[in-house]
Simulated scan of single mutants.
Amino acid sequence: MPLHCLIRRHFPPMSGKSSASGVPASAGSRHAPVWLRLAPVVFLILWSVGFTIAKIGLAYADPLTFLALRYGLVLVVLAPLVVVLRPPMPKTAAAWGHLIIVGLLIQALYFSMTYLSLRLGVSAGSVALITSLQPILVALLVPHLVGERIGAVNWIGLALGLAGAALVIVARSSIEATSALGLTFAFIALASMTAGTLYEKRFGASHHPVTSNAVQYAVGFVATLPLAAILEPMRIEWTWQLVASLGYLVIANSIVAISLLLAMIRRGEASRVSALFFLVPPAAALAAWALLGEHMPPAAWGGMALAAIGVALATRRR
């Protein structure tokens, strides 16, 4: 069965009586298919490897230009799917607005601010460490915004996950920031991903993945292309490395990983899904070590183990 059919079938809107974990009582994890139970692992791998793949591609294009090109290609891939599948469109102005806002927060703001922060001289370690605070913010806000309760064991897991992610980053690179404006952009990226997660949890509906992706990437494209034209010379060197990088980011990251992320947020607790991001810096470091030969000191391996333990506790169901 195609991915879009599986997601649409197994990720219904959050309504009706729920269990203590935030998952509908009629859709307990014990009844979920194997692929659904593996969705967090698949998402983590695709999302984390994407940082290394993006680093390869950015050697041949300016950051925002590269991002706009990525979004434009996603729309090219989705266009024939829209024509052939004719997925249902949102039926109300509010539903359209929710899709657009999530696209603005995650696709436009998060990625644009992250790339601009790196361009202005903030180290990758600083950006990763700042954005790794996202699960903590989500955990602090979900009790007030979406009614989730965070247990003591989950809080311990969040703290261990943050400590493990920080240990990996510090062990691999300097976290000294060299630009106040770049730091501001990194914190805007943190805020936008946090807001996007909470907004999707609060207002997200079970739209067809082709529909939601098309709308949100159109928003990202419209937002990043003018920024690229204003701030960059829009340099592009067409090499096989650039083409391969774009291919991975378009299919694996922009379509599959994002679809899984939004589906997991709608089905499960926002705080539990957000805890996965603690594993992104360690997993990204591991991918860079494997694909680019970047150094992995012993402390980084310890940080990966600590982050994994933290995520296991943070995502433990009560």
Rank of each mutant, 00 (worst) to 15 (best):
M14V: 11
E232A: 05
A285G: 08
I236V: 15
H207Y: 15
L105H: 06
R235I: 12
F221H: 02
V42L: 12
G147R: 08
L313C: 09
H98I: 13
V49H: 07
W47F: 14
A27I: 04
N253K: 04
R266M: 09
A189N: 06
G204A: 00
S19C: 14
E176T: 13
I309P: 02
L58K: 07
T239G: 11
I175F: 04
G57H: 08
F11C: 09
L46K: 04
I255F: 07
V146P: 10
L306H: 08
E237H: 14
V76E: 03
I251C: 07
E200T: 10
K55N: 12
P281G: 00
G157M: 08
K17Y: 10
P88S: 07
V49Q: 05
L246Q: 05
W96E: 07
A165I: 07
V102T: 13
P33H: 01
V76F: 07
A223D: 05
L85N: 12
L158C: 05
V311E: 08
L75C: 10
M264V: 02
A163C: 12
W289L: 04
E237G: 10
E148P: 09
V243M: 14
A177C: 09
V34R: 13
G182H: 01
V311R: 05
L286I: 13
H98W: 13
T194A: 10
V122P: 04
A283S: 15
I255L: 15
P2G: 09
S173T: 14
V280E: 03
E237K: 08
R30I: 11
